[in-house]
Amino acid sequence: MIVLKRLALWFGLPAILIAVWWAFTAQGVNFFVPKPDKLANTFVTVWFSEKFFTDVMPSMGRLLISLAVSLVLGVALGIAIGLSRTLRWLLEPLLEFIRAVPSTILIPVLLLLIGINDAMKITVIVLGCLWPILLNTIEGVRSLDEVLKNTALVYRLRGFDRIRYLVLPGASPLIMAGIRHSLAVGLILLVVSEMFASTDGIGYSIINFQNRIAIPEMWSGIFLLGIIGVLLSVVFQAIQKRVLGWYYGLKEASNDG
């Protein structure tokens, strides 16, 4: 009974919405909104074809490479800036300004400088995803636990060991928060950069369908973006649970005590 109720709560509203949508489009009068069954059919025929390899895979590849680059750059720079007061003072106003520039507007400039290729898209995405990770890492390094810091001092942890056993774990909760933010930003920038200038990818496909006024195909692309967004957040949460397991355990223990 409880299971049934939960199922009803989970799938009740989506079912109602789809039913309303169906009823609304049953007459077939609205040009802009396709019928749900037609959309589902289109979705399967469009994306489960060679398009999966020629458009979806390149897009995901770009996104993952950019995220990896942002992560490495952001954490490395963040630790360096977070640990050094001089560096922080030197770079803070500059970073604040660059971060404030809406990164999509850089696409035309990078197009001129780099040209239409994967390097341009990866640069755009990195320029957007870097900031949440970088700023969170700086903040995480600065808010390291005083007692742990002094303990590391007493044990004479230096150089690599200090970063490996004190700085990185201490900053990791904030770093993970930064990564979650950059996932959303990265998806946005991926789509915009492909819409603006590209020859393949999900964003390119969607804008191409729009130009050909292929409405159901366009909707199916928007749906695909939604599914990718959900998948990314599910995968990220699983990773976060693993990486930060010790942290949640610690917080629970300290709440109980």
Binding site: M195, I207, I215, I222, G226, G229, V230, S233
Partner: peptide
């Protein structure tokens, strides 16, 4: 489901 759809994905729809 609706929240993670990037708003820019709606650009073609808005344009149409």
């Amino acid at each position: 489901f609706l929240r993670p759809i990037p708003a820019v994905g709606l650009i073609p729809l808005a344009a149409l």
